[in-house]
Computed example of a mutant assay.
Amino acid sequence: MASTFFNNKARAAAVSSSSKAKTETKEDTTRQQPWVEKYRPKTLDDVAAQDHTTKVLQRTLQASNLPHMLFYGPPGTGKTSTILALAKSLFGPALYRSRILELNASDERGIGIVRDKVKNFARAQLSQPTGLDAAYLAQYPCPPFKIIILDEADSMTQDAQSALRRTMETYSRITRFCLVCNYVTRIIEPLASRCSKFRFKSLDNSAAGVRLDNIARMENLNLEDGVVETLIRCGEGDLRRAITYLQSAARLAGAAKTGGKDVDEDAEMTDAGADQGIITVRSIEEIAGVIPDSILDSLVQAMQPKGGASAFDAVSTVVTDLVADGWSATQLVGQLYRRVVFTETIPDIQKNKIVLAFSEMDKRLVDGADEHLSVLDLTLRIAGILRG
């Protein structure tokens, strides 16, 4: 034992093997990450399709002085990624943990948390950074304030939002707040008026397509023609959802590779194109739960007027098969809406009544109504409207 300890070659070999093991562990961790986290924007320049917001934030970054901010818009458009990238650009890795407090909807955020955790972090005095060289300070501004990020702030209670007003005013000299939400109307007006508002729009097809193409190239994926367009259509402006679908399809096809090696040798699946490792359009649609056109065609055909005969038997049979196959009622409503409302052969006066039926159906599903009865009622109402 002692001879091994004093043997320089043995010690060097032990250090080398230890560092190699750490490197392999880090690579494994990166490889096992969800692609949504793996390819999350690291800087403001990496944020896609939000040019107006990123330009304004770049200027505030240069001035190193931020106002309170309110980010709102649909999910998967880069709100959380933008504020995290901004915080990392401001403070760098050394000060990020001590200067940033992030609370998500998964955390308890009632009035008690606002009065305790948020207020304590907001009023804590800043300590001067020590041990940072000039190169670090030249790269990261390190302004003299902290940032509190309240993700999904629209789920906070009214009392918690009211308790936040005074905290934002009192400690604004050393603390900035960033509220992130999907619905700005759920933020009380006194909070919204204290913040600079930044609206995030749904990603356009070109920006989302470029990001998906880059991910597919970096993961060495073999895509069938039309896969990116299908991902964009199924994602409906939510890039996070589209990336998740792409990763699931890559696993299904056994095509996800890192450094030329398969991520999982057991990922071979018997899907169409799996032998060649090709991600197909149909596999994306199956993962997204898209109902095949043949099923929609049979449902639309069953709703068509047939003389004086009732459409109940034909519609009921198709709807029962739909529910038995496990298709989502919400997905059915979206696809059936596009199929019926955008049909030019249906008069506008009938479309008005059909849209009203779709809106009532959507509200029922949100409230948790039975899917079978709701879909049956919707389709029979549409059939009755088509009969005139």
Rank of each mutant, 00 (worst) to 15 (best):
A48K: 14
L373P: 01
D367V: 09
A208Q: 06
K88H: 11
M361E: 09
R115H: 06
S202P: 07
K197M: 12
D313C: 10
K257N: 14
A192P: 00
F91N: 03
C181N: 07
A122G: 03
E285S: 01
L164F: 04
L332Q: 05
R381G: 10
G235D: 00
D362W: 04
S283A: 14
I349C: 12
F121A: 00
G368E: 00
F121Y: 06
K117S: 11
L191A: 01
A94I: 12
G289R: 02
L332A: 08
S106P: 07
D51L: 03
A48F: 04
A324L: 13
T80D: 02
Q158I: 12
A369G: 12
G307T: 05
T280Y: 08
M1A: 12
L191G: 02
A329G: 05
T230Q: 08
R165E: 07
A160W: 01
Q335M: 03
S172P: 02
L373A: 13
T185G: 10
I100G: 07
D313G: 11
Q335W: 02
R339G: 09
N120W: 09
Q128S: 13
V263W: 10
Q247P: 10
V15D: 13
A13Y: 08
G131A: 09
L164D: 04
P34Q: 01
H372C: 08
F5C: 12
A249Y: 03
R166Q: 13
V114I: 15
F121W: 04
L246G: 01
D51I: 10
R217F: 09
Q33E: 14
Q125G: 14
D159K: 04
Y140E: 02
S298V: 11
A207P: 03
L137S: 01
V180G: 00
R166V: 06
G254H: 06
R217W: 06
V318Y: 01
T4W: 11
R233W: 12
G260N: 03
D293L: 15
I113L: 08
A216G: 03
R59W: 07
D159C: 05
L164C: 04
A311Q: 15
S298P: 10
S18E: 15
F145R: 05
G388S: 08
S127V: 14
G78I: 03
R165N: 00
L365V: 05
A216Q: 00
E344D: 14
D154T: 04
I187D: 05
R123A: 03
K197R: 15
G384D: 12
C234L: 06
A329E: 00
L95M: 12
T330E: 13
L103E: 02
V118R: 02
L126I: 11
Q50I: 00
K88D: 03
T343S: 15
T170Q: 14
L191P: 01
A274Y: 07
L90M: 01
F145V: 04
T244Y: 07
R241C: 10
E37P: 07
A311I: 12
Y245F: 15
D151L: 06
L356W: 11
D297Q: 10
V366F: 08
Q62G: 09
E224P: 02
T230A: 11
A249R: 03
A135E: 14
Q139E: 15
L70C: 09
P347R: 08
D51C: 04
G110V: 06
G226V: 07
